[in-house]
Simulated assay, not measured.
Amino acid sequence: MSPDVVRLTDVRKTYGGRRNAVTALDGVTIGFPRATFTAVMGPSGSGKSTFLHCAAGLDRPTSGSVMLEDEELSKLSEVDLTKLRRDRVGFVFQAFNLLPAFSVQDNVTLPLRLAGKRVKAEVVDRVLAQVGLAERRKHLPGELSGGQQQRVAIARALITRPAVMFADEPTGALDTRTAREVLNLLRASVDQVGQTVVMVTHDPVAASYADRVVFLADGKLVGELNRPTAEAVAERMTHLGAWAESAGVR
């Protein structure tokens, strides 16, 4: 088995027909090792969202392969792909996507119940404690702050012990202090329980919480930084933005 939890090999994604084809990903090859935190950055229109959707099995690449542990995603039926995402992939988005009539605990345990799995009290207790919401389990989302709602979303993503968690701009709707709390929680999930996290972000400060930052431009990987600082990421993005603008990237 590959040491990478997720591996993309020569992935291309093209939208439209032959006359109006748009290439969103252009031969991307990259792996994400277990228990690592990777940030994905790039100018608007660089292919970040398409990259995340293909890596997470939400969209099928036009060509190339996506491996999740021992599974080649392109070979799975839609039913099997849905089951794999439910059981082995966690998702956290900028919009918290909580059910407003469900309590914190019911929102967190929803993936288990949808899968027909028994909800073990000790697992729920552990995950709620991990995100600092043990005392809020009976509250409704509307009774929580934005940061607390995002922590519920993270707990929901962690409850199935997924192979990988994909986060799409998870701090985009949060203030600076609350964003820092959420990023510390993602960082702790990597360091303390060995979670693998892949996060799309536009924020150099958010990216500095990752082990490495990979940069996309015009659908291609154009560089990476290991042990990033916010300053180094911002500088790289400044140059990347200038390069992308001159290359006609939208």
Score class of each variant (00 low, 15 high):
Val6Phe: 07
Leu8Asp: 00
Thr9Tyr: 07
Asp10Thr: 12
Asp10Arg: 14
Val11Tyr: 04
Thr14Pro: 00
Tyr15Thr: 06
Gly16Tyr: 01
Gly16Trp: 04
Ala21Asp: 07
Ala24Val: 04
Thr29Ile: 10
Phe32His: 01
Pro33Trp: 06
Arg34Tyr: 01
Ala35Lys: 00
Thr36Phe: 03
Ala39Gly: 05
Val40Cys: 06
Gly42Thr: 01
Pro43Gln: 08
Pro43Asn: 09
Ser44Ala: 11
Ser46Ile: 09
Gly47Asn: 13
Ser49Cys: 03
Phe51Ser: 08
Cys54Gln: 14
Ala56Lys: 01
Asp59Leu: 13
Ser63Gln: 10
Glu69Gly: 02
Asp70Thr: 03
Leu73Cys: 10
Lys75Ala: 15
Glu78Ala: 14
Asp80Lys: 12
Leu81Val: 07
Asp87Ile: 00
Val89Ala: 07
Phe91Val: 08
Phe93Val: 04
Ala95Gly: 06
Ala95Val: 11
Asn97Met: 12
Leu99Thr: 14
Ala101Asp: 14
Ser103Val: 05
Val104Phe: 03
Val104Met: 08
Val104Ile: 03
Thr109Asn: 00
Leu112His: 09
Val119His: 02
Lys120Phe: 10
Ala121Tyr: 05
Glu122Ser: 12
Val123Met: 11
Val124Thr: 15
Asp125Glu: 15
Val127Glu: 12
Ala129Lys: 15
Leu133Ser: 06
Glu135Thr: 06
Arg136Asp: 02
Arg137Gly: 04
Lys138Cys: 00
Gly142Cys: 11
Gly142Trp: 05
Glu143Arg: 03
Ser145Asn: 07
Gln150Pro: 06
Arg151Gln: 05
Val152Trp: 08
Ala153Trp: 02
Ala157Lys: 11
Ala157Glu: 09
Arg161Asn: 09
Ala163Phe: 05
Met165Gly: 02
Met165Ala: 07
Phe166Met: 01
Asp168Val: 03
Glu169Asn: 01
Pro170Trp: 10
Ala173Tyr: 00
Leu174Asn: 08
Asp175Gln: 08
Asp175His: 05
Thr176Glu: 15
Thr176His: 14
Arg177Thr: 07
Arg177Ala: 14
Thr178Gln: 06
Ala179Val: 02
Arg180Phe: 04
Val182Tyr: 04
Val182Asp: 09
Val182Arg: 10
Asn184Gln: 12
Leu185Lys: 02
Leu186Lys: 04
Leu186Val: 11
Arg187Asn: 10
Ser189Tyr: 10
Ser189Glu: 15
Val190Ile: 08
Gln195Ile: 00
Thr196Glu: 09
Val197Asn: 12
Val198Gln: 05
Val198Ser: 00
Val198Leu: 08
Met199Phe: 13
Val200Ala: 07
Thr201Lys: 09
Thr201Ala: 11
Thr201Gln: 12
His202Gln: 11
His202Val: 09
Asp203Ala: 13
Asp203Trp: 02
Asp203Thr: 10
Val205Gln: 14
Ser208Leu: 02
Ser208Thr: 01
Ser208Ala: 14
Arg212Tyr: 05
Val214His: 06
Phe215Arg: 12
Leu221Met: 13
Leu225Arg: 13
Asn226Ala: 15
Glu231Gln: 13
Met237Glu: 02
Met237Asn: 03
His239Tyr: 10
Gly241Ala: 00
Trp243Lys: 12
Val249Lys: 09
